[in-house]
């Protein structure tokens, strides 16, 4: 797959622009609208790694917020706990789901409250030093 076809595939998958070579493709990506005065938002998406090698996301950042973290919601007995993930491995030619009640990206301390009109630029940083950007909409989806 050449550069242009990869970019087109990326746009088809997520309807979003990417400024760097598309290392991964994302689809159904959105920032979940938070209730008023709540300064945390979750980001969900399906990530597809089309490469023949494993790729590892070592950090995430968002232009809207002071902090962005990879998290996993996990049930521990009768309790639900949220774990911080230091990295996220994307196996070769496989999908990884960031979904409600499971892995997600947590956005914290937004510069301004995120509304349904907000646009968020999310950046993945990979273990090989490369980065990839995605533009996301804020939605109030059924979780």
């Amino acid at each position: 797959m050449n550069y242009y076809s990869r970019v087109i595939a990326g746009v088809c998958f997520c309807g979003l622009a990417s400024h760097s070579a598309a290392q991964v493709l994302v689809e159904n990506a959105w920032v979940q609208l938070a209730p008023p005065a709540i300064n945390v938002n979750a980001v969900y998406m399906q990530i597809h790694n089309p490469q023949l090698r494993l790729q590892t996301i070592v950090s995430v950042s968002a232009d809207c917020c002071a902090k962005a973290m990879l998290h996993n919601t996990r049930k521990l007995g009768d309790k639900v706990v949220m774990e911080h993930l230091d990295y996220l491995e994307l196996p070769a030619q496989a999908n990884v789901q960031l979904a409600p009640g499971g892995m997600h990206i947590m956005l914290m301390e937004p510069d301004a409250e995120l509304t349904l009109e907000s646009k968020v630029k999310l950046t993945f940083s990979y273990s090989d030093g490369s980065t990839q950007e995605f533009g996301l909409d804020v939605k109030n989806n059924d979780l």
Binding site: Q32, I38, N39, V40, H71, T73, L143
Partner: peptide
């Protein structure tokens, strides 16, 4: 708790 970004919104929905 209200600062819960994932689980509580899902359950309250």
């Amino acid at each position: 708790f209200t600062s819960c970004p994932d689980y509580c919104p899902m359950e309250l929905q």
